[in-house]
């Protein structure tokens, strides 16, 4: 992939560290995300991927290093401020608002842009009526994009798993982010659903003008849509590059399959060709 160095990266992690006592969950990680990229973050369980997401979104403070979003250092800011600056995310274990309706889950994301004050709300005045109507219609349009509009009155925890995942992505998008972080969006999906998801992710990146960074374990999804992949193990980056580069990388293979696996896999591939 051609690195265009004359565009400012939308996100940069510079020697980012996050320690929990003695555990170096994220250890001097460098990462650069260009605008509109669709990038992947992979690695064995416990390699620090979700922790990186948590640091970027402000749930943890960096222990060292910097997180730079659109040229601004955002380390240590509160998560809600970071969201309002333009970063949204989904969670590994889906975190919807379980007892609220599908519509309300999405409407909440619009809250920072609601357009009326608390006193307007208490008085239910005309300004409130107008803005609330606008907000609701925007939310409903959004649901249409994800084909969830017929479920708008359904309680979120009653939705089937796949729709819950879609709703979580829809909710994230409703906050009009510039950067969307997806944490294992295809978890628990069968191959057919995963393909549909891949198409959806492509679609939203194009339609909403987003940059997407995704953590995923299902390799067909990652290799299928990611333009650039970063591989982590034990809190450090062990490889970067395109899908092909990364698949062949010795360190990556050994991280997943154990030491000596790289040699073995080379042999295996040779034998298969024969």
């Amino acid at each position: 992939m051609a690195e265009t160095t004359n565009t400012t990266p939308i996100l940069e992690l510079r020697k980012l560290c996050r320690y929990f006592g003695g555990l170096k969950a994220v250890n001097e990680v460098d990462l650069v995300l260009q605008p509109h990229a669709l990038n992947g973050l992979i690695g064995p369980n416990g390699s620090g991927k979700t922790t990186i997401f948590n640091v970027i979104t402000g749930i943890y403070e960096p222990t060292g290093g910097e997180v730079v979003f659109e040229g601004q250092s955002i380390g240590g800011l509160d998560p809600f401020i970071i969201n309002q600056m333009g970063i949204a995310r989904t969670f590994q274990n889906i975190r919807l608002f379980p007892n609220l309706t599908v519509l309300d889950n999405v409407r909440i994301a619009y809250h920072p842009h609601a357009g009326y004050s608390m006193s307007d709300a208490i008085m239910h005045n005309k300004h409130f009526d107008e803005k609330e109507k606008e907000l609701t219609e925007k939310a409903q349009d959004f649901l249409r994009v994800f084909n969830l509009q017929d479920r708008q009155a359904e309680i979120a925890r009653n939705l089937p798993y796949g729709e819950q995942r879609r709703l979580e992505i829809a909710r994230g998008l409703a906050s009009s982010p510039k950067l969307l972080l997806l944490d294992e969006p295809a978890a628990g999906m069968n191959p057919k659903e995963a393909i549909t998801l891949m198409e959806l992710i492509h679609f939203i990146r194009d339609k909403f003008d987003l940059t997407i960074l995704l953590i995923e374990h299902q390799m067909r999804v990652v290799m299928g849509i990611c333009e650039h992949i970063t591989v982590m193990d034990f809190g450090q980056v062990i490889a970067r590059g395109s899908a092909q580069d990364v698949q062949k990388d010795k360190h990556v293979i050994e991280a997943y399959l154990g030491p000596g696996a790289a040699e073995l896999s080379k042999q295996y591939l040779k034998e298969r060709k024969q």
């Binding site: 809600f80 969670f91 608002f97």
Partner: peptide, 24 residues
């Protein structure tokens, strides 16, 4: 029955998700 009410209730439902969605 307003966005503020939804923000208030979202905190009960899931604080982490609420804060990640821009709710102070």
């Amino acid at each position: 029955n307003s966005s503020y009410g939804r923000a208030i209730v979202s905190i009960r439902e899931d604080e982490t998700a609420a804060t990640s969605m821009g709710i102070d």
